[in-house]
Design a binder for these strands. Sequence first.
DNA 1: TTGACATATTGACGATTATCGATATAATCT
DNA 2: AGATTATATCGATAATCGTCAATATGTCAA
Lengths: 98, 98
Amino acid sequence: MDRIYKALAEINRRKIIFWLGRGELNVSQIVKKLDLSQATISNHLSILRKSKLVDFKVKGKERIYKLNSETINQFVKELNRLMPTTDTNLENEIIIRR
Amino acid sequence: MDRIYKALAEINRRKIIFWLGRGELNVSQIVKKLDLSQATISNHLSILRKSKLVDFKVKGKERIYKLNSETINQFVKELNRLMPTTDTNLENEIIIRR
DNA sequence: TTGACATATTGACGATTATCGATATAATCT
DNA sequence: AGATTATATCGATAATCGTCAATATGTCAA
């Protein structure tokens, strides 16, 4: 979990996650979206990979990155354990835990 | 939001949040929970304060820290915007919408 | 007002991080 | 094979971060 929190602490990595939430992208496409060098993006992707927040699949010489929704779900769960919300925004829902 | 992500990136600050989730604490009590110097705890509290994740009230010479649930709710909302979950992991919960 | 206690701030230090140019690796194309 | 394209890794550098001893500030009690 520590890696995930650290991965999310950097704004450009959050931007990458934002874009990947809107669809899969290869590295060059990500480089175009953020104004950073290819080496820097590659480093950010390495950190995101290690956190398991993202995955990739190989397609020829490209690597197509995407979010790893299993990790995301786990993280959101863990975050709710750390800081339970009062759910004021879901005021019309009743949650029954068994 | 950046301050919040950064505040959460450090494990001892997350521990402080964990403990505050279980009840309000003054600084000396927090120092006892984590094995860090008073100066370090005070510095972490300063960062948590700036992120607005925590608040305090004065009681004599003590400062009693507590979570700021408004900020927490905002953050969880923002996080869901950044990384929407598929909620597959909430299988033991029943949500009744009215 | 002096002394003890609670907390914050300062200044220093080593550790970690973000960034990039240069280079390496690997796949594809001619 | 050699050139081209896509991505990763290396090495360096500057900036930020976590930590603590020392000191400052504020509060209470005798």
